[in-house]
Design a protein around this nucleic acid. Sequence first.
DNA 1: CATTAGAGGCTTATTTAGGG
DNA 2: CCCTAAATAAGCCTCTAATG
Length: 295
Amino acid sequence: MDRLPPLNALRAFEAVARRLSITIAAEELHVTPGAVSRQIRTLEDTLGIQLLVRGHRQISLTRAGEDYYRAVTKSMDGLREATVRLTRRTKRTQLKVRAYTTFAMRWLIPRLSSFHTANSGIEVLLTASLDPVDFRREDIDGAIRLGDGKWSGTNAYRLVSNILVPVCSPDLGKKVRKPADLDRQVLLHSIARPDDWACWLAAAKAEKLVDARSGMTYQSSAMAYAAALEGQGFAIAQRFLVEDDLAAGKLVAPFRQAVDMGDFTYYLLTPADRNESASMATFRKWLLAQFETTA
DNA sequence: CATTAGAGGCTTATTTAGGG
DNA sequence: CCCTAAATAAGCCTCTAATG
C-alpha cells in the first residue's frame, strides 16, 4: 500500500499509544473517548492489522502497534519540528530537564550560566525530583538519573564516575588520621543515599569499628554537604559534586580510600522513541563535554 | 475504563435545473 | 449547448447513552 492511512486516525493512534489510555488521549485531542476508539478501529480496519490489545478497563499495544507507534511518533515529531521552525524561526526553544536536587544545586546550576551564554536560544527549564521519569506520561525532554545504565525505552548517556569519599571542613580534617577515627566524629547522612557510609566503611575495612548509622541525617546530600562545610561533621560525598569546594580548600578529603560505584552512577536519559531535538543535542553534547574535562 | 449503536451535524460529491 | 448554482445523496465525524 502506497497510500497514507487516515491522518486523523493516525494522530489519534499516536496519542493513545503515547498515553496508553483512550480517555487521556481523547482529552488531549479535545474529543470524546468514543470518537478516539472509533478512529483507532477505522485505522486498524484500513491497515488490516490489529494495533491495540483491549484489556479489561485498559489497553496495551500489540507488537505491531509498538513498532508502528515508534515510526509514527518520529514522523509526527518531524512535522512538529518543521512547524515550529516555520512559525517561530527566531523564538527561543525550551528544554525541560529533570535532575536531583543535589545534582542541580551542587553541579548543574553553577555551570548552567555558561551554557546559556553559549546557547542563548535555548532555555533550560530545570525541575528537581526523586521520582523516576516516564517520558510517555510527562512533558519532559531529558532527565539526569542515578542508575546502572539499563533503562528500557530511553537513551542513557553515562555522565561521570561516581566516587564516594568522605569530606569535612579543613579544621575537622586535622582531627582524624585513619578511618577508625571516625568513631568519635559525627557522620552526616542523606535520606536519599542511606547506604553510602556503610559502603565506604566496608571498603575501608572499618565497618566493625565505626557505626555507619550514627550521626545526623538530612533530606538531601546537598544539605549534608552544607553541614560539612559548616564543620558539623563528615559527609560521605560523591566526589564530582564537591570537587569545587575541595579545589577551593573549603572542604578536605582526609582519607585516600575512595569507592568507585562503577556503572551505578549518573546518566542523562532521553526518550528513545522520539527524535532528539536540535536543542537537546546541543545540551547533551555540552553536558557530556563538561565531564570530559573534569573527569 | 473501553466499546458500541444510533442520531445529528457538517463536508464533499453528484445530480439536476435554469440562465447566458 | 455550456456553465453555474441549487438540491440531493453519500460519507464522515463526533456526540450521547447504554453496555461489558
